[in-house]
Every structure is written in structure tokens, then in C-alpha cells.
């Protein structure tokens, strides 16, 4: 098992590591030199402009620390605000995303394997996913009253379509040879679905899940901006209304970090789960 893991890792990284510390320094410099340049230029420009709405990065970082990292070390310095702002929104986002993913994958695979049934619902699906989710926020607000339900509804409605369509596509385009083989060796319906169709469709399902995760973050923010009393989006709105522009910038930066981490974690999981596919025809 270990040998396999090693040989696979070796296959992914074909270049042998060579060169000493100088080479590593050069690699870092050639890759990251622009970042300090841009930050320095931004700092200088912001100080020169001296506008309240355009604070220098140093002020933004200070504000971030003040807002979210002023807590006790036992809580990794997270402040009460950090926990109060981040947790509810993230909780809703994950709940919505997981719910949509579950329904999307199950329904998508079912429809992908049942071509005739899919014909009946495809026009509805294609129309529904073309409706921009923000159009429905007001509707959900009126329907649900509770803001948590409203936000969940916005997120679920918005992110289910990429998962559903990709799962359908994946289940529909399972290599015929795989199914023939399964039939010849007498695999039952359940096994065929779980052990053949699901893994065969997995690369497409993951592409859909990834798309829907970044969409979920967007919808979390917009739903909190429009109708919520907590969450990062709500704090962002408060900062804007209070003309706390370092706070606005800081929140955006935080959301950027969040998006980056979410995507990185997702890619990590995807690589692990789809290790057999990474070497194949990955496109996204």
C-alpha cells in the first residue's frame, strides 16, 4: 500500500528535486515577487490619497486583527465577534450546500440512469437553474419569515443545479464497457449503482460540487446582505452603513481568505478521493 502511495506521488511530481537552497530561494522569489510590490504600491497610493474610503493595507490588517483576532489565546485569539459573525453564516452555508449536494447527487444519478424520466423534467431543470437566485430572495423572505430558513432556501435553490446537472451527465455517460462488465459478472442493481455508476460519475460530480461550493459562498453573502441579522454579510452591511471603510475592506479580505481555504480544502479532498482519476483526463 505504502509503495503504491509513493509511486503515485512520484508519478504526479515527475521532476526530481534538484539544486540547493539558492534554487529554492529563486523559485520563491520568481513566483512571489509581485505580491510585496503590489502591496507596497497600494500602501503608498493609499497614504498619498489619504481618502477614508481607500485605506492602506496596513490599516485594513489592523482592523482585521481588532475585529476578529483580539480574543484570548485559548481560543486561538478568535474574538467573540469572529465567532458570532462567522459561525452562523458558515453553518447555514454548509448545511445548504450539503443538503443541495445530497439531493442533487441522488436525483442526478437517478435521472442520469433513467433517460425517459429525465426527458420529462429536463426543461424544468434548465429553466430553474437559469433563474438568478437573488430574484427569489424576496419571495423566500415572504414565504419563510425566519431568516435562517430564507437563507437556507436561497443557498439550496442556487447551488443544487450544478450538482444535479453534473451528476446527471456523469451517470448518463458511464462507459458502456463498465456496465457490460458489471452485467457479465452478475453485479446486482445496488452494487452496480454504488460500485460502478457512482465512482464512474465521480469526476463530474466533483466538478459540480466544486462549482456549487463557490456559489454557496456567494449566496451566503448576498442572503446575509439582504435579509439577515447576523453573519459576515450582515457585518459587512453594518460596516458600510457606518462608513467604517477599513471594516468593509477587512471583511472582504476575510471572505477572500475563506473562499481560498474552502477551495483549497475541497481540492485536497478531491485529489484524495479521485486519485485514480488525477492522472487521467482531468480538465478543470
Amino acid at each position: 500500500m505504502k509503495a503504491v502511495a509513493e509511486s503515485r506521488a512520484g508519478a504526479v511530481r515527475p521532476e526530481p528535486r534538484r539544486g540547493g537552497p539558492l534554487r529554492i530561494v529563486w523559485a520563491v522569489v520568481s513566483r512571489f515577487w509581485l505580491v510585496p510590490v503590489v502591496v507596497a504600491a497600494w500602501e503608498a497610493a493609499a497614504r498619498a490619497a489619504a481618502s477614508i474610503d481607500f485605506p492602506p493595507p496596513s490599516a485594513i490588517v489592523l482592523r482585521m486583527r481588532e475585529l476578529w483576532l483580539s480574543g484570548p489565546p485559548t481560543r486561538l485569539f478568535l474574538s467573540d465577534d469572529a465567532i458570532a459573525d462567522l459561525l452562523p453564516g458558515l453553518g447555514r452555508m454548509f448545511a445548504g450546500w450539503l443538503l443541495a449536494s445530497l439531493v442533487g447527487v441522488v436525483a442526478g444519478i437517478a435521472l442520469g440512469r433513467a433517460a425517459t424520466a429525465a426527458h420529462y423534467v429536463e426543461p424544468l431543470i434548465h429553466f430553474a437553474r437559469a433563474v438568478p437566485p437573488p430574484m427569489l430572495i424576496t419571495l423566500f423572505v415572504l414565504l419563510f419569515r425566519s431568516s435562517t430558513q430564507t437563507q437556507l432556501a436561497v443557498i439550496v435553490f442556487g447551488v443544487i443545479w450544478p450538482v444535479l446537472l453534473n451528476s446527471m451527465d456523469g451517470a448518463r455517460s458511464v462507459e458502456r464497457g463498465y456496465l457490460d462488465t458489471a452485467a457479465v459478472f452478475g453485479l446486482g442493481r445496488r452494487e452496480r449503482l454504488l460500485r460502478i455508476v457512482l465512482p464512474a460519475a465521480a469526476p463530474k460530480i466533483f466538478a459540480g460540487l466544486r462549482l456549487s461550493l463557490s456559489l454557496a459562498l456567494i449566496l451566503m453573502v448576498i442572503s446575509e446582505l439582504v435579509g439577515s441579522t447576523d453573519g459576515i454579510g450582515y457585518e459587512l452591511l453594518q460596516a458600510q452603513r457606518g462608513f467604517d471603510s477599513p471594516g468593509v475592506w477587512a471583511t472582504i479580505l476575510l471572505l477572500g481568505l475563506l473562499g481560498y481555504v474552502l477551495n483549497a480544502v475541497f481540492v485536497l479532498v478531491e485529489r484524495r478521493v479521485l486519485s485514480w482519476h488525477v492522472r487521467g483526463t482531468r480538465t478543470t
Binding site: R176, G177, Y178, D180, T181, V184, P199, H277
Partner: peptide
């Protein structure tokens, strides 16, 4: 059955 095209009958996962 052993099919001609192993790439379509062996499960890559």
C-alpha cells in the same frame, strides 16, 4: 468475459 478493450472493462477506481 474478457473484453478486447481493457481500458473500458477494468474499473480505473
Amino acid at each position: 468475459v474478457v473484453f478486447q478493450d481493457y481500458s473500458r472493462s477494468l474499473f480505473p477506481w
